[in-house]
Design a protein around this nucleic acid. Structure first.
Lengths: 233, 233, 233, 233
DNA sequence: TATGAATGAGGCTTCATTCAT
DNA sequence: TATGAATGAAGCCTCATTCAT
């Protein structure tokens, strides 16, 4: 599952693979804690290798991100497949979003991945593409099925996902790992077909407009966690 | 409402007022582009003054923010008053949120103001407090009135506001100044009382938990607009 | 007593004298608290005048010091005169030193004055000169009288004064305004003629050597008094 | 005794050891000239390396001080041991103080070390602790033995050491490396038991008061050695 | 290839000193 | 003349990136 997006040729050579894996794992944890713009030195130190080794394996931040979130692609894809084949399309959509949010709550880095644009990251592009495709399919089925409001577009869902997703780590830190369930439920009530819902105003985002939004959102940076506790002052 | 919070009200001196205004204007633009944690030096350079001059006028970042967004407080307060006295509470809530989002769309800095925690900024605290109070009142009336779903809390609304608000400048940039209307409508459909809505899961955020969320969100930082691509490296 | 050392011509002109006095008073207090290298702006602000006004009155730090400690010259001179005419020379010496130390304990600035070399300060030179002369006379009488050990030179006393003097403000802050009495008593027991005292080794400092010592000691700078209390950490 | 306190003992890497040594040497000289609060940049420049390199080797000032003065701890400890085991306690005390002063005369930095408070420096704390303990023991023995005046406390001696110690480098510079002998002899005559000595006035400093005094004294800063003369502006 | 080290630039803040009104 | 403002340099620290072994 990792191969398609690796910067280095397949899993090439010697014990350098060990180093690479340690780097990826260290980066995963560091990104989860500090966001995608964590210092390189921190990642290297955590991996127990020199920083230059990190550069050798991953010449750019995007390459590292690619490697780190290769797995996310797999996991997201799998969740997407499950959702696509769910008998009830509404349940499929709900389950899919819940899966994504649970990941965001568990891992700060995933958050950035789903909501951030990072140039040159093939993994990220792949995640975004698969994500979009999944939502498209689920919405289409849901509209047919009558459970999803007819004027809801994939971009509506993706935008809501990005917006709420960016708050999920903060929510998790302040109110526990399941705190995203309530705002998600609110969102879903808006997505659902209901006689009480009026028509949505203003045109839906076109796909490339949504991409531009992500692009402009940029990588997220957390409030510095100062000594004294993360929720104070 | 504005004067009481200014760091150094109009009774300034001579041409230094010119400088002050240039600083505030530079800060406004810089905050709009880079977020509330934009480098002081950038603001000063943009204003065409030395960095120490910036410090003279605004000894702390909070003072600068206060100066820049003093107007926002007044505007938000006025909008809040109007909303509170609206005959129809649902219309009042909608109108208030529309006002806030329109402000966010017009000025990136406003976004941070509404959603960021910045210690010692009286303007920011005042904006937050007024905002919360307005939402509280409107929800209370709306629930009585039957238009707002009964289990919706102010924190639900404030969180949605913060989450979507953070994307508004990106939306505006990518799809025009009114692009927030559609996602807001989706949100509102979730807020409205409707037989199709289930009960909201997981406990509502307590006020101090919401504050902690804001704190953890930190100031937003836009994708750096570098030569070669706006989001990365 | 002030005139001889003023930088500005006698007490010249108009209401500028008022400003000058306020500056001198502000400088006295500021020097007392922060030492002779206190920021100019602090002095000016405390005096309620612009910093440029301070510069106009006192183009150099030395000029300000001169003005500030003109009074000290007077006070020290008076104490010296009293000491010189004391019936018992030992009592005179003790009383003089006690006077000086009491001043040091009360006023941080005095400390610097007595022990610091500051180029171009005529007041400081005058204080030093008078101080030396007083000690010389008292020692001469004390040796004749038999109460002072015969090999004690003025430089011995002046050096001890400078060394202990530099600690007096710290002593006062940590253990009260009279804390200098005990170490001074120890010193005096060493100064006194006594059969138990051997001959002093190594040659006495020559006057110009003592000046060089003061020169090298430079102005004293206190430990920054950080929030949290001055005696902690 | 030295190795245990090194920030990064010999097992360094390659030619970086060269850099480290150059940094330590540069720091030693710079501290000797400017005191323990000399600018980091100056040290780095003198060592011919970038300032960040200094930070890499010594993340805090205390670490640098520790590295620079690690030897002093060993030397002081050894001198303390010799003094404690001297047959004649008075001679032990005298010898110990002479050793300390000789060190001060040779190296300005040592001066600060003995008399300055610097948070988090293990070397400094160790030096202070050992110094105090040595003086305590020697005084106790000397009082029993009858050579030390009975009311003399360790804090009396330590304060005198700090006060005179601060002048020793200036003394050495102005009058030669042995110039401290004469003022030390004067002090010792005051310490010695003698019928001519009265009772010491005012209570002795308590240990924590003495610590507060050191804290307040802060690091010493020499007169800036500028072009145009060694002590002035 | 891997490494630790080195670097330089950038952001922050404080002050002495000069300038414009 | 008095003033507040402006300035630039200096010190602190952090990090992305390149170098020497």
């Amino acid at each position: 599952m990792t191969d398609a997006n690796d910067t280095a040729p397949p899993p090439g050579r010697r014990d350098a693979r060990r180093n690479r894996e340690r780097l990826v794992e260290a980066a995963r944890r560091t990104f989860a804690e500090q966001g995608l713009d964590a210092p390189f030195d921190v990642v290297a130190r955590r991996a127990g290798v020199g920083n230059a080794t990190l550069y050798r394996h991953f010449p750019t931040r995007a390459a590292l991100v690619d490697a780190v979130f290769g797995d996310l692609l797999a996991a997201t894809s799998a969740a997407g497949e499950r959702a696509r084949s769910a008998p009830d399309p509404w349940e499929g959509l709900v389950g899919y979003l819940e899966h994504v949010f649970a990941g965001l709550a568990a891992d700060r880095g995933s958050n950035d991945l789903m909501t951030a644009h990072l140039p040159d990251s093939r993994t990220l592009e792949a995640v975004h593409a698969h994500n979009r495709r999944t939502v498209e399919l689920l919405l289409a089925r849901g509209r047919e099925h009558g459970s999803v409001r007819p004027d809801l577009t994939p971009e509506d869902v993706l935008l809501a996902l990005a917006a709420l997703g960016r708050t999920v780590p903060a929510l998790a830190g302040a109110a526990g790992p399941g705190a995203w369930r309530r705002p998600l439920a609110l969102l879903l009530d808006g997505f659902r077909a209901s006689p009480g819902h009026g028509a949505l105003p203003s045109p839906a985002l076109r796909p490339e407009q949504f991409d531009a939004v992500l692009h402009r959102l940029g990588p997220h940076r957390a409030a510095p966690t100062r000594p004294g506790g993360p929720a104070g002052t």
